[in-house]
Amino acid sequence: MVIGFIIGCEIAFWIVLGLGLLLRYPLRRPTAGAVVLAGVPLVDLALLVACAVDLHNGATAGSTHALAALYLGFSLAFAHTVVRWADVRFAHRFAGGPEPEKPANRRAHEWRLFGLAAIAWAVTCALLAVGIWWIGDPARTAALKNGMGQVSMVLVIWFVVGPLLTSNTSGRKQSTSKTKRR
């Protein structure tokens, strides 16, 4: 049941986003578009309620419940960024807005994304911890505890392939250019 809700919420997220942007730009109804876009968090609330009901009804927490927590954490941390990314592109395409720009400072961009990933990690771990506490039965919550370790590993990998490698690459470019000037 939970995996179906995750898939449904992902589909609903993109439908709500698309509808909000469609109203805002091609249909020229910016207020209605803003109202629909403000409803994006309701999709996350539906998933949270579905998981809580499933666990309350005695289900043993599985990897799908941990995945739902990750989805919620990611959605809460990144939803605004995704909406803004799509909004800029829709504005450019349908309302004569400026062309989307690439980040001027790649290192700062990677650190910003990593900061959002850290927020997603914190929300996910908090939701998993609340689930473990709420259920109160280690036999039924092992998957939630494992989920904490898995999402922590994802954050470490994100750090290495994101800001760490970007920072090192930028540092090499700067030191190389200083050497060439001498």
Rank of each mutant, 00 (worst) to 15 (best):
residue 104 A to Q: 08
residue 134 W to P: 02
residue 88 V to K: 07
residue 70 L to R: 05
residue 56 H to G: 14
residue 156 V to M: 11
residue 121 W to M: 08
residue 84 R to D: 12
residue 67 L to V: 02
residue 98 P to D: 11
residue 115 G to H: 07
residue 87 D to Q: 03
residue 96 G to Q: 07
residue 43 V to Q: 04
residue 33 G to E: 03
residue 102 K to R: 14
residue 72 L to H: 01
residue 43 V to F: 08
residue 57 N to K: 11
residue 123 V to D: 04
residue 53 V to R: 06
residue 97 G to I: 12
residue 82 V to E: 01
residue 62 G to F: 03
residue 44 D to H: 09
residue 66 A to T: 06
residue 104 A to N: 06
residue 83 V to L: 06
residue 80 H to K: 07
residue 156 V to R: 03
residue 73 G to A: 06
residue 135 I to F: 01
residue 128 L to I: 09
residue 53 V to K: 02
residue 79 A to N: 02
residue 67 L to T: 09
residue 112 R to G: 13
residue 34 A to N: 10
residue 111 W to Y: 14
residue 35 V to L: 14
residue 74 F to P: 00
residue 124 T to K: 13
residue 34 A to R: 07
residue 88 V to F: 01
residue 72 L to W: 01
residue 86 A to P: 00
residue 150 Q to T: 10
residue 90 F to C: 07
residue 58 G to Q: 06
residue 114 F to Q: 11
residue 55 L to D: 04
residue 73 G to S: 09
residue 139 A to I: 05
residue 51 C to N: 05
residue 108 A to C: 01
residue 146 N to D: 12
residue 126 A to T: 15
residue 119 I to F: 11
residue 133 W to T: 13
residue 143 A to N: 02
residue 38 A to G: 09
residue 145 K to F: 12
residue 61 A to P: 05
residue 47 L to E: 05
residue 157 I to F: 13
residue 80 H to P: 01
residue 153 M to T: 12
residue 129 A to G: 09
residue 73 G to V: 12
residue 75 S to F: 03
residue 93 R to Q: 13
residue 120 A to C: 09
residue 141 T to K: 03
residue 55 L to V: 12
residue 114 F to Y: 15
residue 92 H to F: 15
residue 66 A to F: 05
residue 44 D to L: 10
residue 113 L to I: 15
residue 120 A to T: 10
residue 116 L to C: 03
residue 159 F to Y: 14
residue 101 E to P: 00
residue 69 A to P: 06
residue 86 A to V: 07
residue 33 G to V: 02
residue 129 A to N: 04
residue 134 W to D: 08
residue 117 A to H: 11
residue 149 G to V: 08
residue 61 A to F: 02
residue 50 A to L: 02
residue 60 T to R: 13
residue 62 G to R: 06
residue 100 P to W: 11
residue 158 W to N: 14
residue 129 A to H: 03
residue 109 H to E: 10
residue 55 L to A: 11
residue 88 V to G: 00
residue 84 R to I: 04
residue 74 F to M: 09
residue 43 V to P: 06
residue 39 G to F: 09
residue 119 I to V: 15
residue 108 A to I: 13
residue 68 A to Q: 00
residue 119 I to H: 03
residue 55 L to N: 03
residue 144 L to G: 08
residue 61 A to R: 02
residue 135 I to G: 02
residue 70 L to V: 15
residue 55 L to C: 12
residue 137 D to V: 12
residue 145 K to R: 13
residue 126 A to P: 02
residue 127 L to E: 06
